[in-house]
């Protein structure tokens, strides 16, 4: 053959089919050129949308920055570290509010994540088909309930129950801990934590279930064929799914941090830092929702917008981390 070797491999696998190959290539070129314009428009259009979303986020961040300029100039970083939130004196320190947001969300995760993983394991690994479908449906139904309905349920069912049963019980048996002291109001951090835990349960468990399902069956079979018990093979699956479940948890955290209505209705709405879960607290989202209508002075409004900016940045960070984790998990399993 007189062709150089690379060409032999790529273009001319067989001398006899050479002319056929060339004509095929011509046809392919024609096909591509006739389709290129559509592809071009399609690509550019989707790119445009992606860029638009990105710009929107930047724009929102910028608007909030401009809106909170007065407050930022006056308080600077002390906005984050000062614990007095006093609209009358025009002093705005968001520490108790940030504290309330983080603590309520974190504790909600502590309660909700183990439960969610348990539900996910049951749905994906244990439950028979006929039970799995209605159960999954129920879990997803929970995710669709509007948060104001959770809030109402919180006020009329959860809070009274906490006041008459949970808090007296806790202070009697665990009252030596600072977390369970004080008067049992019902409204407060504990109620917010419980309601958040219930609200993030569906999202964390249904995403975790999908993640577990995406682990190939061959992994379970590999373990079982080596003499693993059902639980041991489930542990292998969980190991594969670890980063994905972590991502699901972060999505739950994002939801908890931004949750407004239900939390406002039960948390007691006072910007104080107290170790006791019985005491009222406040979250960033609730402060903004509650006080925006009352913000008459320019500084007050500016401080609230700064609070929104803090919440905005926090949620973006959490969600980005969640997406990154889920994505890295999918990539890892996909390349197998």
């Amino acid at each position: 053959m007189d062709n150089p070797e690379t060409q032999v491999n790529i273009e001319n696998p067989n001398n006899k089919s050479n002319s056929l190959w060339i004509s095929l290539k011509g046809q392919l070129k024609k096909f591509l050129s006739s389709h290129n314009i559509g592809d071009f428009i399609f690509e550019r259009l989707t790119l445009l949308f992606a860029v638009l979303v990105f710009l929107l986020v930047i724009l929102m961040g910028y608007e909030m920055y401009v809106g909170s300029k007065i407050s930022i100039d006056k308080f600077g970083w002390s906005f984050l570290t000062n614990s007095v939130w006093d609209p009358v004196q025009e002093i705005y320190g968001a520490l108790p509010i940030i504290y309330g947001t983080i603590v309520s969300s974190f504790l909600a995760l502590v309660i909700s994540v183990p439960l969610s993983i348990g539900i996910a394991i049951f749905l994906s690994e244990v439950s028979p088909d006929w039970l799995e479908k209605p159960l999954s449906f129920l879990v997803e139904l929970l995710a669709g309930i509007p948060s104001v309905v959770y809030g109402l349920w919180g006020i009329f069912v959860l809070v009274p129950w906490i006041r008459t049963d949970v808090e007296p019980f806790l202070s009697e048996h665990l009252g030596f801990l600072p977390f369970f002291r004080g008067a049992p109001y019902g409204f407060g951090m504990l109620a917010a934590v419980l309601i958040l835990a219930i609200m993030i349960l569906p999202i964390v468990s249904s995403i975790s279930r999908d993640i577990l399902r995406s682990v190939p069956q061959s992994q379970r079979e590999a373990a079982l064929a080596l003499g693993a018990t059902r639980w041991q093979s489930t542990k292998i699956v969980l190991k594969d799914a670890k980063s994905g479940i972590l991502g699901a948890t972060m999505l739950g955290l994002g939801r908890a941090v931004g949750e407004t209505m239900a939390v406002t209705m039960v948390i007691g709405n006072r910007a104080v830092i107290s170790p006791s879960l019985f005491d009222p607290s406040y979250t960033m989202a609730s402060v903004i929702a509650n006080e925006f209508t009352e913000a008459t002075s320019e500084m007050y409004l500016s401080a609230l917008i700064q609070l929104a900016l803090v919440l905005f940045v926090l949620t973006i960070i959490i969600n980005a981390m969640a997406k990154l984790l889920v994505w890295s998990m999918e990539r890892k399993l996909g390349t197998r």
């Binding site: 190939p216 061959s218 992994q219 079979e221 590999a222 064929a225 292998i236 890892k332 197998r336």
Partner: peptide, 13 residues
Amino acid sequence: LGMVFQKPNPFPT
């Protein structure tokens, strides 16, 4: 009775 599958399935983690 050990088993080897059609598609290699080592544990990725």
